[in-house]
């Protein structure tokens, strides 16, 4: 569904992402892990067409993102780590705006009502977004990316700022989407969540994808029974050690 081959991104002389390749299947929930500055956000931005890869290719449902960006972008949804919403619009107006960006009929916004309900935003849907809390902004931003019914949804640290209830709703929603065949990629620092939700995880460190697979696979590969947290620390530290020597 989403295929990245040999992605590389340089910012000036700095190499932020190096040789990252993976394929996500239809209906898969993929966890994207890695320490701060590992290059997760950069990779995700390349995957949604916001950053040009210095090298490498991206296919979204068989559509080349760089050759046919419009077509590919229609199939993509992206929720950035900082909520990207217009403060001076109300929640509903923002959804209407987003719908127009994706060329949806006005009725699509009415159809978003059940999302508002699910995320407890019905009450404040007609308030200015500037009055929202961080978590509410995050949620309205997410809904803005759900209404065009993307086939691949990428979320950058979506749980930051969400209350426990919303976090659970989010989990349920994401699980539901996957069940319906949507491919979901989330980057997160919350390893228990990744462990609980994700079918497979990828671990990035210093721009490289150092491990990818289901947790069982990873445990098998590294001959360990330990949980994801230990595994994560072991892998990222090992990579550091390697670099030092």
């Amino acid at each position: 569904m989403l295929e990245a081959t040999g992605l590389r991104k340089e910012f000036g002389h700095k190499v932020a992402v190096e040789d990252v390749s993976f394929t996500l299947n239809k209906g898969e929930l993929f966890g994207f892990l890695g320490p701060n500055g590992a290059g997760k956000t950069t990779t995700i931005r390349m995957l949604v067409g916001l950053l040009r890869p210095t090298r490498g290719e991206i296919q979204v449902a068989g559509v080349d993102l760089q050759r046919r960006p419009m077509e590919a972008k229609r199939r993509l949804g992206y929720v950035p780590d900082r909520p990207m919403v217009h403060d001076k619009l109300t929640g509903r107006e923002f959804l209407r705006f987003m719908a127009s960006l994706y060329d949806l009929p006005a009725r699509a916004v009415d159809e978003a009502d059940h999302w508002l309900e699910q995320f407890d935003l019905t009450e404040s849907a007609d308030d200015l977004i500037s009055t929202y809390s961080h978590g509410m902004k995050q949620k309205i931003g997410l809904i803005g990316q759900l209404i065009h019914e993307p086939e691949v949804l990428l979320l950058d640290e979506p749980t930051v700022g969400l209350d426990p209830k919303s976090a659970r709703t989010l989990r349920n929603v994401l699980n539901g989407l996957c069940a319906k065949g949507v491919t979901v990629l989330i980057s997160t620092h919350l390893l228990p969540i990744a462990e609980m939700m994700c079918h497979r995880v990828g671990i990035m460190d210093r721009g490289r994808l150092i491990a990818i697979g289901s947790i069982a696979e990873l445990q098998e590969r590294y001959h360990t029974e330990s949980n994801l947290e230990d595994l994560f620390l072991r892998l990222t530290e090992a990579a550091e050690g390697e670099r030092r020597t």
Binding site: G49, L50, K73, R82, M98, L101
Partner: peptide, 13 residues
Amino acid sequence: GEQVWLYLQAPAP
């Protein structure tokens, strides 16, 4: 502001 990304993210000409 940063929201200019929205135009790039969506298939808006």
